[in-house]
Design a protein around this nucleic acid. Sequence first.
DNA 1: TCCTTGCATCATGTATCATGATAGTGAATG
DNA 2: CATTCACTATCATGATACATGATGCAAGGA
Lengths: 282, 282
Amino acid sequence: MLDLMQLRSFVTLEQMGSFSLAAKKLGLGQSTVSQHIQRLETQLGRSLVQRDTHRLALTPDGEALLAHARTMLTINGEVQAHFAENSLRGHLRLGVSEDFVISLLPDVLEDFGRTHPSVDLELTVSLSGVLYEMLDRGEIDLILAKRQRGDPRGELVYRGPLVWLARDPARLGEKHKVLPLIAFPPPSIIRRLALEALEKHQIPWRIVCTCGSLSGLVAAARAGMGVLVQPRSMAPTGLQEIPAGRLPPLEDVEFVLLPRKGADRELVSALSKEILSNIRNF
Amino acid sequence: MLDLMQLRSFVTLEQMGSFSLAAKKLGLGQSTVSQHIQRLETQLGRSLVQRDTHRLALTPDGEALLAHARTMLTINGEVQAHFAENSLRGHLRLGVSEDFVISLLPDVLEDFGRTHPSVDLELTVSLSGVLYEMLDRGEIDLILAKRQRGDPRGELVYRGPLVWLARDPARLGEKHKVLPLIAFPPPSIIRRLALEALEKHQIPWRIVCTCGSLSGLVAAARAGMGVLVQPRSMAPTGLQEIPAGRLPPLEDVEFVLLPRKGADRELVSALSKEILSNIRNF
DNA sequence: TCCTTGCATCATGTATCATGATAGTGAATG
DNA sequence: CATTCACTATCATGATACATGATGCAAGGA
């Protein structure tokens, strides 16, 4: 007979990729998570995770268990929600700027969906500027977006430096005299920050790639087409940071969590907490 | 976080309709099952079963939990089967005489399906005589049927007296001089036993209803059309037993479990055990 | 080489669990 | 109406499992 606690440790371990991080996330001791996995392996008679001491991977058996464990935990969550006096119900429209979609959002959605199965989430991914407009028009209930300059609204959630990225920083000046830029279209905030910095230092530039999706921009940058600006903590693999001094310094970027006036406070609060607790990893 | 043990006790409690029977079936103490339910109720903050001390019913919350509990246990069974070295796999064709279908089969199928999720069961319901024929033709792997007279094959599983049943035994002789009989068509074993007993005592009879399904026969008997013969332990509600003496005594009926030669021994054995352990309730 | 990071192991106090016995409750019996 | 019976809740207890913090050990980085 399986133990849901152990399964939860197992699923979280896979999410976090580390015993100690999983333990932290679950509010348990590290040895506890270790024992949970061990008991699962003993009970099932197979090894579930491959421990390369500094690399962690699930075995095929582990993958098989993972799927089942997820659905069991999901059902468990539904039951809890059904019997919880104050179980949240309703509909919440979340807007997220593309930066977090790949890295943060999967875990947030999985955890939130499990702990609040009766809440329908509607997700919009777009540029921060667009999200603000939608929020103001009442089309979205909560956004996680970059702070607009001079807009004091919202709760600061993350702050970090912007960096210039390129596939091969050393060979930047070779072909082009003007800086080739890869950027979101307006009203991208990062785009505006980058252009302002360049103009302030009178560095000529031109846009070589504009794309509404981050993956498109990254593809262009990986292809060596030009320079991309991203928060350092979200720098995609395959790109290198251009050392300070070669290009003008950039302001820090700030991400804020901003609810729509009139949105359901409880839903917003619950989802905000989930996002905040997951964003600490950055 | 839910406990699968407790959920299993809950599901079994609903199956058995009694704490002590559930405990016996699970191999636990009665107080254990009681506490399992209590913990579930405490944890979820609602009462799940209505205890009228001699009547047991699930509350609406209990019903809601039951469905979820079933699927969680099913998934748990699938995982166990996946990791069990000797988990049974394959296809098994089971034939059951109609008598057991309503009373016994649901629990058997549910339990067996849960403990052996990788076994496909194919069910045939028919008269015992037909089942024997199908078995001999190799169309079925295991049958649970009445013993054919003079056929020593099979393992005795249940033996009990046959009784005459009618809606209103007192008014039997009123309308008819010949005994109105409700019976399966040939090659029904009960039918043959009944007719033999009547002819041995030279009691005139006629068939007033013949139907391939038990529910049809029961409906006719409930309508007062005539007399029905059934094992005492399977007497349908709404019919009364005709006291001994008014009609000739009947032989005991014997149910046997009979596998086809060449059928997968392990599958047959596993299913046989499941049937045997469930048939004790009779 | 030292230091840091991360997981496994160990001993231990605590909490939880299953159990058997007992008491309480309603129905059936005479 | 008293008794018996079948059934469940409660209780104390012994055993078990559990989470924890400290320690040991291996690998990668400075």
